[in-house]
Amino acid sequence: MSSKKDPELPVQPKSGFSRRGFIRGVGIGSGVLGTTGLLPKEAAAAPGAAVVGPGPVAMTLTINGKPVNLTAEPRVTLLDAMRNYLDLTGAKRVCDRGTCGACTVLINGKSVYSCTTLAIDAQGKKIETIEGLPVNNPVSAAFVNHDGQQCGYCTPGFVMAAHGFLREHPNPTEADVEHGLCGNLCRCGTYMGVRKAVVEAAKGMKGGSNG
């Protein structure tokens, strides 16, 4: 990690919680919700708005149809929760900023970047990862058939993005695939195979289970 704090250059003032602000806040807030909270609960903590963290929190994620429990801080992304806490390593951490797609999973059926989703925020949603697909699911198999992978590090993300895409576009052309999978990047240069693979996978999925 490279610190972005550069002592010689002005940085955006950290307008966060000065001690003075904290004391003032406490003065006007009710502060009833928990003692670990960092912020005053100015609105007298309307019911249901429980504040958790910043320390580890027990969470339950529904991954591939099964509830999975873990305890992690609210700042843990879904990607890190999977990779670091649950040993689900199919989704990869590459850019870690929602610009490469290697971490793609489906949430409630839609492709999303798990590096830019908080695990705690993914509770109660249907999370689908590559581990939930059979090895021979039509999309993965088509990637093999058309050699749409080389080092393979981007591939699980592509496969999940393709699954999400095909649910909405069951009869894509290669041009549709280009548009539909443009949220994923590959460094080895496998796009030629990927285009063909996704078109073929669509055909293979007709009328059958799409994994």
Binding site: G16, F17, G21, T36, P47, A49, V51, P54, D121
Partner: peptide, 28 residues
Amino acid sequence: QAFEYANPNTLQEATGLLGAQWGDAGVL
């Protein structure tokens, strides 16, 4: 960095959880 997390169901709850300074809260 670490933060505490709130998951309000109403706008009223949500606005009540914000602070007067930018560093107090982030809206997700």
